[in-house]
């Protein structure tokens, strides 16, 4: 089942926008609706669009299985390390040791309803980013494995 040129061009055009929107949802996870899982799913949808529209050999130049595996492992590792960091600051595992401390993502937050500051939230943006790239890597690896398995059966 080969897709037409229209589908391939549209997928090529939408692919970077999907990635950017997913990254926006991930980065603004502590201010607007969404978060790591949702943003990662949107990014993975962008790669899925490319994978559906093209043959397996066409996409391996842009989406590499090894890089996606590395993304997934790095995401989970970032989550664990950020959580373990709390143990060295007198907090529990996954305790929010960066919030409102003046350091990384540590600005004071205004109470009440406001537009929000991107540099607040402490641990939450880090965990969001970790989960985001983990979901992107995991779902893309699943799709790549399925596609490569189908290609072998055809032979």
């Amino acid at each position: 089942m080969k897709m037409t040129k229209i589908v391939r061009t549209t997928a090529d055009l939408f692919f970077p926008f999907c990635l950017v929107f997913g990254l926006y949802v991930v980065v603004h996870g502590h201010l607007t609706p969404g978060g790591g899982f949702q943003g990662g799913a949107v990014m993975a949808t962008g790669t899925a669009l490319l994978l559906v529209a093209r043959a397996y050999d066409d996409v391996t130049g842009r989406i590499r299985k090894g890089a996606m595996k590395a993304c997934e492992a790095t995401g989970l590792m970032l989550f664990l390390l950020a959580g373990l960091g709390g143990l060295f600051h007198g907090r529990a595992f996954l305790g929010n040791w960066l919030a409102q401390a003046g350091g990384l993502f540590g600005n004071r937050v205004e109470l009440g309803a406001n537009a929000g500051d991107l540099y607040t939230g402490g641990l939450i943006p880090l965990l969001n980013f970790g989960v985001g790239i983990e979901v992107l890597g995991g779902l893309t690896v699943i799709l790549l494995y399925m596609l490569s398995g189908i290609k072998e059966e055809k032979k």
């Binding site: 089942m1 949702q38 799913a41 899925a48 669009l49 559906v52 799709l143 399925m146 189908i150 059966e153």
Partner: peptide
């Protein structure tokens, strides 16, 4: 809503189409 639109409308359809292709 965002999770459902991403997973349900995007990824699940892609996986189904890849499975139908095979």
């Amino acid at each position: 809503a965002i999770a459902e639109a991403g997973i349900g409308a995007g990824l699940t359809t892609a996986i189904f189409i890849i499975a139908i292709r095979g």
